[in-house]
Design a protein around this nucleic acid. Structure first.
Lengths: 232, 232
DNA sequence: ACCTGAACACCGTTCAAGT
DNA sequence: ACCTGAACACCGTTCAAGT
């Protein structure tokens, strides 16, 4: 073989491993992300991964880092000030809704964020930004602290899917069942739902998310006024 | 061996399997709940379990049922009316705080409730009770529906542990790190925390939970007034 | 230095066999 | 009918060996 180079395979790196892990999770879900399947996707043996990553937990932590890095770039798109006066509510709302747009691209983020220790530097940096936004709005540290807890996972752009619905409930809503849960049956009959598709789930569409978010933001603002806004 | 009976081993039943599974999860956590270890705790082989339960998922579903059954009995203790007028807020608040007391006894409930399909009849019945309470308070079905989403897991007595803290963060808060997250560092320095112990985690003590819950309940009540309370 | 095959200690679960 | 041992198809990971 003379001068012409054979296209050599890209060398395996931590970044390539994480990118492949992200793609695998995006396409087939977190359960499909095993060391053996990930290696296969990279055209390599499972044990090769351990030369670039200490173990599987490190891969999952890396995925969280990747997602939160996307939060930054996604949030930067909302940088231009609007015509409405920039309040802490407006800024925080935009930040959180930007985070949510990332989650809609990577459905595995909530499960990972919920079930892992809150360790990642990117997550802490994100929280720091949120604290900064509220501080700039004149909230006391005490109120900010309470508010972070109150926002919970909504701070990261998601809420859990815990409402019963026809897709995740294996309980047939037969007449006997309906009689046992008359209030729920009446509510389900009385509420018109958007069609699913571009949502995290059946009911958890943008409307529901923003309702809960605004409920909290409004309530926090009222607490801020009540405590007599200290100098920002 | 004449008349005296040897103490025969209790027959294995679904109820005994579930009770042992609950105890194992209570003591050693959900990860320790494997078919083999559960069988060992019952003095039996792993495969024997499959004669009383179709598979492991059925056991996990059964655990959720057990927990929600405890919600009922725990909630019944608050049945006596107080001197304060019984509002929907008061009733719902008591119901949710009762659920929370159950969770403090069974720390595995949140993880199980979050990661499983919302299928269990007991969960649906619980939700029906919540809907009934709000309906009795004059909330429209539409507002009730939004409110269930807004309450999220708080409806079941818990919120996620997502705040960074020294116990679940492996990031050392050295001066260089502190400089990167000045707002967070300032807040952590400025907030006095209760000692942990009888809580779900570091910051998620009763105070934080009730702060978020009341924020939501107050906000919902304001929405109810705003929409002009329909006849209950 | 990087990659690999065999192996280990676990899973949940199937199957054929025991009583 | 109820229980069991061996086995299967998976895991994450260790180790000794290749280049």
């Amino acid at each position: 073989m003379p001068a012409r180079k054979v296209a050599t395979r890209e060398p395996l790196t931590r970044d390539r491993v994480l990118a492949a892990a992200r793609d695998l999770a995006d396409e087939d879900g977190l359960d499909a992300l095993t060391m053996r399947r990930l290696a296969e996707a990279l055209g390599v043996e499972a044990m090769s991964l351990y030369h670039h990553v200490p173990n599987k937990d490190a891969i999952l932590d890396g995925l969280v880092e990747l997602a939160f890095a996307e939060f930054e770039t996604e949030g930067a798109q909302d940088g231009t000030p609007t015509t409405t006066p920039a309040t802490w509510q407006h800024d925080l709302r935009a930040r959180i809704l930007a985070a949510r747009r990332v989650l809609l691209r990577h459905r595995w983020v909530p499960q990972l964020v919920e079930n892992r220790a809150m360790a990642s530097p990117a997550m802490i940096r994100y929280t720091d930004d949120v604290v900064g936004l509220m501080r700039a709005g004149g909230l006391s540290f005490d109120l900010i602290h309470h508010s972070l807890h109150a926002l919970g996972s909504r701070m990261y752009g998601f809420t859990q899917e815990l409402m019963p619905n026809e897709s995740n409930s294996n309980v047939d809503m037969d007449p006997r069942m309906m009689a046992m849960v008359p209030n729920l049956a009446a509510m389900l009959a009385g509420v018109v739902h958007d069609e699913p598709g571009d949502t995290l789930g059946w009911c958890d569409d943008q409307t529901e998310f923003e309702f809960g978010l605004d409920l909290l933001l409004d309530g926090i603002e009222r607490r801020r006024v009540a405590e007599g806004a200290p100098p920002g």
